[in-house]
């Protein structure tokens, strides 16, 4: 089936079998290998992408179901070539990763959280990433990274009279 997608702001048209998951479409058809194939049955969270701005597991939907939708992958969160998003920056600074396998999904989940809740409590951060398994860090530095990113994004580049 032929489907149209808005991938990281670019209109793309791809040919997929109905059984192709959104994850496999992103990785194999579109070459966006930042969405990681971990368990492929909805348990690990490594395949998380933003689907119309909301964090979802891309292994738990078929690409044909995404027809006409906007998808953001880790490749789409950087402000420009060679730059990092504030969340990515914070993950580097606090060393919020070791092997890196869960990292793109953690960062997208954090972006989704901070878009709705610019000042999350520690408990809210923990709850938000509870669907993303990390087997290296023990999560402490990931939570720290998201809190740091939140703090910076709250203060970043806003006119003095901007509404909160």
């Amino acid at each position: 089936m032929r489907i149209k997608l808005d991938i990281n702001g670019l209109k793309r048209e791809v040919e997929v079998e109905p059984r192709t998951t959104l994850l496999d479409c992103l990785r194999d058809t579109l070459g966006l290998t930042g969405a990681h194939a971990g368990c492929e049955h909805g348990v690990c969270g490594a395949c998380t992408v933003l689907f119309d701005g909301v964090a979802v597991r891309s292994c738990l939907m078929f690409a044909v179901q995404a027809q006409g939708s906007a998808i953001t992958t880790i490749e789409g969160v950087t402000p420009g070539p060679g730059e990092l998003s504030p969340v990515q920056d914070a993950f580097c600074e606090t060393h919020g990763m070791q092997c890196g396998f869960c990292t793109p999904a953690m960062i997208l989940t954090a972006h989704a959280l901070l878009a709705n809740n610019p000042n999350p409590t520690r408990a809210e951060i923990v709850e938000a990433i509870s669907g993303n398994i990390c087997r290296c860090t023990g999560y402490a530095q990931i939570v720290e990274a998201i809190a740091l990113a939140a703090e910076r994004m709250r203060g970043a580049n806003r006119p003095k009279d901007a509404h909160p």
């Binding site: 969270g45 909301v54 979802v56 597991r57 738990l60 709850e127 669907g131």
Partner: peptide
């Protein structure tokens, strides 16, 4: 029920 990412779908 599940996690935020599964409740979203």
């Amino acid at each position: 029920i599940g996690h935020a990412a599964t409740r979203a779908r």
